[in-house]
Nucleic acid binder design. Structure first.
Lengths: 371, 371
DNA sequence: CTGAAAGCGCTAACAC
DNA sequence: GTGTTAGCGCTTTCAG
């Protein structure tokens, strides 16, 4: 059907513009534009003519031009710490899906938890004129790059990690309480020697100041953990809490170190699935049985955790909902222009599977918490 | 420093444009533009003036405008089947990182292996005028949406899955050979009854025509498997190969079905980590020990696979390299304008861990392959 | 080396 | 309802 003619049009010629469509449909640019963007200021008849013309020309709207004059790109930016981490990965998917549902696409940039990369990412995104940005901040107290002239670079929401004193909407989970809850579960099964393996990008800094200066998730989990200990009058044993970067072998080493202590902790809380894997691996090497000699609770559920034997008890976080909420919060800012910092904190869910063993009567909460 | 003045400029006024910078630096728009984009047709002195002016105004280049007039957006599109799958997730990260290294950002769209979504995604991306697109095609033989007027919508490369007869550069791995190799490993340990669990989006279609109509990865793995069987003169037993959608419980059911057969296969090959997890879960429920009653090989390595006991033997695929290669191939097309279909096929690596048990003397390759 | 002016393709007043 | 026109902010000849 019209092979050669079509070829001449589409092969060598530049992409058809709206004037071409208008021309073919025998109307003005404006009318064509209106018809194409579904304005109701056009007759059904002309709309049809235009649509057909567009179709036959294989017309694709030039989104750049549209964004430029409309002042909206229908694109949002996501600045994430590490997509290949199963938590952020699922959050990313939630964000992309939710955005798509609202006709937005997502420009994703990975920072590897590197502040410099984050600064760069925010700059690039704002230059690309995204309509809003979701960021997983890699530092709890550096925020210059998020503001320009005292206002956020663009509609902005923080994901997963809070930045104290920064007036920006934030979507997080209540990890502090979950850590306390984990300790309670351990205590209720008679555990009194609890360790913790903390997996974080800046393990140096974190270990140096005991989770001060760490991102809020780490901070919350560690302080929830120590709070829990206090609740039961259990001593806080610094050596039982290990910090490690995101490298399996290092994490295993840290885990082994904790498990080599004498007396050895009977229960370990880990800050994510990778850390849990490290504990398991360490136990393998040391011939300690998970759920027997070593009880385990991990933040973040993952597919393998429930298949593993014993199935791993986890703090399941509402990842998808978190991503969804972030997008929605962002869209509200975009649509309303109101950038007020409305934050939401979602609840986690402790899934008690098989990795926390009963080793004796429950420890009683202390009326005189230690320290 | 100049608080109130700065405020007046940045608070209520629109974002500074290049003329503002030019003005402040006391040069023309053209010169400012040149200075800002690092052209060498400007004195060091003026460049400095301009840069300082830009700095003091908090100037951010309007990327849309630039892209529009330059005809390049420095953005590429990624149309992926399912980011929350650990393979695609790592590929995505590789793509984003590699692109970033070349100053490109990535617009990611998820299709969930749905063709309609894929068509839509490609359209949106081409409208957004990305400089190129990487797609994981959800169907091996539908490609209209990738072409317009006989030419690719944009520079284009296919990732992970081939489309026979479609002249587009493709980056894949040699899964056919790997499947054969898996069979050989089983056979070398005395296994003669081998099953396979195939996890795919369109399990209906796939099971209906025995992996015809399935995406190339599935097709290759299944035909490599049967080829391997033939090599050893082993009978192809249709009931030993199960197809299942990406839902854990369904997959477990399919696995149990295979493992309930009499005689039961002693070895299972799975097409991905999730399917492997399903087999493991099925074995848990049926009280069969992996690496004892049931040997297992899975496509795709994953963090848990090496920690699991017995450690799972896997076909490790060069995910990161794959994503990297896709971006590089795309950039070549973008930079050269030469859209010739140069494809690359990378080699997988079978990692022999502990899940394939020796159960008897090696089966000998047959001189008279069955069928 | 620098400046003036013509687009890039679309939207949005503002007329008719 | 439809057409005219003036930008959106940048790049890029083409002069000087």
């Amino acid at each position: 059907m019209g092979e050669s003619v079509d070829r001449d049009r589409t092969d060598r010629a530049r992409a058809p513009r709206i004037v071409d469509v208008a021309c073919l449909a025998d109307v003005s640019k404006a009318t064509a534009a209106r018809a194409l963007s579904g304005s109701d200021l056009v007759t059904e008849a002309t709309r049809l003519k235009v649509l057909q013309a567009a179709e036959s020309l294989n017309y694709r709207m030039n989104g750049l031009a549209r964004a430029m004059s409309a002042g909206r790109s229908r694109t949002i930016g996501l600045v994430i710490a590490d997509i290949s981490n199963s938590f952020f990965d699922r959050a990313t998917r939630a964000i992309i899906d939710t955005a798509a549902r609202h006709d937005y696409q997502v420009l994703v940039i990975n920072t590897d938890d590197d502040l410099r990369a984050e600064v760069q990412a925010v700059r690039v995104l704002s230059e690309k004129r995204v309509d809003g940005i979701i960021v997983v901040p890699s530092s709890p107290d550096t925020f210059d790059h998020l503001f320009v002239g005292g206002k956020p670079v663009s509609p902005l929401v923080l994901l997963d990690r809070r930045m104290p004193n920064v007036p920006v909407g934030t979507v997080t989970t209540d990890d502090y309480s979950s850590a306390v809850e984990a300790v309670r579960l351990f205590a209720s099964r008679g555990h009194s020697r609890m360790g913790m393996l903390v997996n974080s990008a800046d393990s140096h800094e974190a270990s140096a100041n005991g989770a001060n200066g760490a991102v809020s998730t780490i901070h919350d989990r560690v302080s929830g953990f120590t709070k829990g200990l206090k609740e039961y009058g259990l001593p806080f044993e610094p050596a039982w809490i290990g910090y490690t970067p995101h490298v399996h072998d290092d994490a295993v080493r840290a885990a082994k170190q904790i498990l080599s202590l004498d007396p050895r902790p009977t229960a370990i809380l880990t800050t994510n699935a990778d850390a849990a894997l490290a504990v398991i691996d360490a136990c393998n090497e040391m011939h300690l049985a998970i759920g027997e000699e070593v009880s385990l609770i991990s933040f973040d559920d993952s597919p393998w955790a429930r298949v593993f034997r014993p199935a791993i008890t986890v703090v399941d976080r509402p990842v998808y909902e978190l991503g969804e909420a972030a997008v929605k919060a962002l869209l509200v800012q975009i649509d309303s222009g109101d950038m007020h910092a409305r934050s939401v904190e979602m609840q986690n869910h402790l899934i008690d599977r098989e990795s926390v063993r009963y080793i004796g009567p429950p420890i009683a909460p202390s009326l005189f918490p230690s320290r």
